[in-house]
């Protein structure tokens, strides 16, 4: 996992992740388990204003107790109690973990190229086969979608034919 993927899994900006790890004196290892714990910490920090160190202690306890305890109760004195739906929390974590692996991609680095040509000339220079586009534009949108369905079906057949 990269820092960017880890931050997506936590649901926080990269800078927050780095600062929180520094404050908690956690070695910057970007693992799904670490992301779960830090996401829990962030939830308590943002939702309740709990200090990071205490939130980290609660997160460790609550996550260690799952799946035996699906709901975590934490009492912070005589009159204050906290209840966390750990099952729900882990569900949200799983969604973010999925996004970090499938949707997130590192942004292209460096300055964009100068004097880049746009439009048809730019696409041709980039290696796009313009004749395919012209052919496609002769069809109606409905025909294009039908053809896509046929292409995808053909691809599936090819995959089935693979040993």
């Amino acid at each position: 996992m990269t820092l960017g993927q880890f931050a997506v899994a936590v649901g926080a900006p990269k800078r927050w992740v780095q600062n929180a790890m520094r404050v908690l004196r956690v070695r910057p290892r970007y693992t799904p388990e670490g992301a779960k714990r830090l996401a829990f910490v962030r939830m308590l920090r943002d939702g309740l204003g709990m200090p990071l160190a205490r939130a980290d202690r609660v997160a460790r306890q609550a996550l260690a107790a799952w799946p035996a305890r699906k709901v975590w109760d934490y009492e912070a004195g005589d009159a204050v109690a906290l209840r966390v739906d750990v099952e729900r929390f882990l569900g949200s974590c799983a969604v973010r973990l999925s996004l970090s692996r499938t949707y997130y991609a590192e942004k292209r680095r460096g300055r964009p190229r100068k004097h880049v040509r746009h439009g048809i000339a730019g696409a041709r220079e980039y290696g796009v086969d313009i004749s395919l586009l012209e052919e496609s534009l002769r069809r109606t949108p409905e025909e294009r979608l039908r053809r896509l369905d046929a292409d995808v079906a053909a691809l599936k057949l090819l995959r089935v034919a693979e040993p």
Binding site: H118, G122, A123, Y126, V128, L133
Partner: peptide, 15 residues
């Protein structure tokens, strides 16, 4: 800003 999306930009601009 993702590479896989930016790779599609020239074709869409041509269209």
């Amino acid at each position: 800003g993702r590479r896989k999306d930016l790779d599609q930009v020239p074709e869409l601009e041509a269209l």
